[in-house]
Design a protein around this nucleic acid. Structure first.
Length: 288
DNA sequence: CGATTAACCTGGAAGC
DNA sequence: TGCTTCCAGGTTAATC
């Protein structure tokens, strides 16, 4: 469940369960997801405590007392399911959330946390997600983050910094905003929504988004993401599980997945086009 | 260098 | 009902 608001929602769901917890045991059910698991993955986790549940862009970061950080990217379909462990045969606190756990449970973390012994399962149908272990001190220089752009919800992100990042780019602004080196954490949904809110055509050359347009776009991005986080992210498919990601921002979409429907602002039909192989939804009347 | 395309993988929905 | 095709919230490797 991928973009920044969904990852932040997952982080907020897992933090109370994971922070301060000790990793008792890890079940690794395959050698790779999108990439192979790092060497000695299970050994480097087992026995350590999770000091904090953090996030950078679409990556979850679990800082361990070992000095390493467990990095988890959810890809397109990664999710977590939390269950209380049934040590003594008594029903667990989360058992009411247990429906049928499907076949794609790849990693199970058994932890001893603030709420007792729990089982945190990583499930990922398409296996586009991945996990890594990096020394916490070297995170910023790691391949995952070295070239990554600014977090849109921090003070370093502004209209000026955005137009700087888009400078000289001939690609459509839609495509540039999906480039994590330009800005971190956006995906297809929130790029479409932010461009609509800012009144900017997704087809406009990225380098032309300067001045007033950039000053509109930066707050549009920030506001959309903030509102989406407040709504618990967007849920496109229903998931049964304690993944903390049953959001409802999808009800607030103005353009995404609304091709043919009326634009709420001008009543013209929303268009769907394909840009670099991905759907773009926009209003050709409101967005120039 | 930037831009475009294919590829990774599974499953649900739509079309015939 | 069954088969085929298309599509999906992401990234990356290989081209041009």
């Amino acid at each position: 469940m991928p973009e920044l608001p969904e990852v932040e929602t997952v982080r907020r769901g897992l933090a109370p369960v994971m922070e301060g917890a000790r990793i008792l045991r890890v079940e690794l059910r395959r050698a790779d997801l999108r990439f192979p698991f790092p060497d000695s993955f299970v050994n480097r986790l087992t026995g350590w405590r999770i000091a904090a549940a953090d996030r950078r862009a679409k990556y979850l970061l679990f800082h361990l007392t070992s000095g390493e950080t467990l990095i988890i990217h959810l890809g397109m379909t990664g999710r977590f399911i939390v269950e209380a462990e049934e040590l003594d045969g008594k029903p667990g606190a989360f058992d009411h959330l247990l429906t049928n756990i499907p076949a794609h449970d790849h990693v199970v973390f058994h932890i001893d946390g603030p709420d007792g012994v729990a089982k945190v399962t990583y499930n990922d149908v398409r296996r586009f997600g991945f996990m890594d272990l990096i020394e916490t001190d070297k995170l910023a220089d790691s391949t995952h983050f070295a070239e990554m752009g600014p977090e849109p919800l921090t003070n370093s992100f502004s209209g000026a910094s955005l137009s700087d990042a888009l400078h000289g780019r001939n690609a459509p602004v839609k495509q540039a905003l999906l480039d994590q080196r330009v800005i971190a954490g956006l995906g297809n949904i929130y790029v479409c929504e932010a461009l609509h809110r800012a009144g900017i055509s997704p087809k406009r050359k990225a380098k032309s988004v300067v001045g007033k347009r950039a000053e509109r776009l930066a707050p549009a991005i920030r506001d959309i993401l903030t509102e989406a986080i407040r709504a618990g992210g967007s849920t496109l498919k229903d998931y049964a599980g304690a993944d903390g990601a049953l959001g409802y921002f999808q009800h607030d979409f103005k353009v995404y997945d609304r091709a043919g429907q009326e634009c709420g602002a001008c009543s013209q039909p929303i268009k769907r086009i394909v840009q670099s192989g991905r759907s773009t939804f926009y209003c050709s009347s409101c967005q120039r």
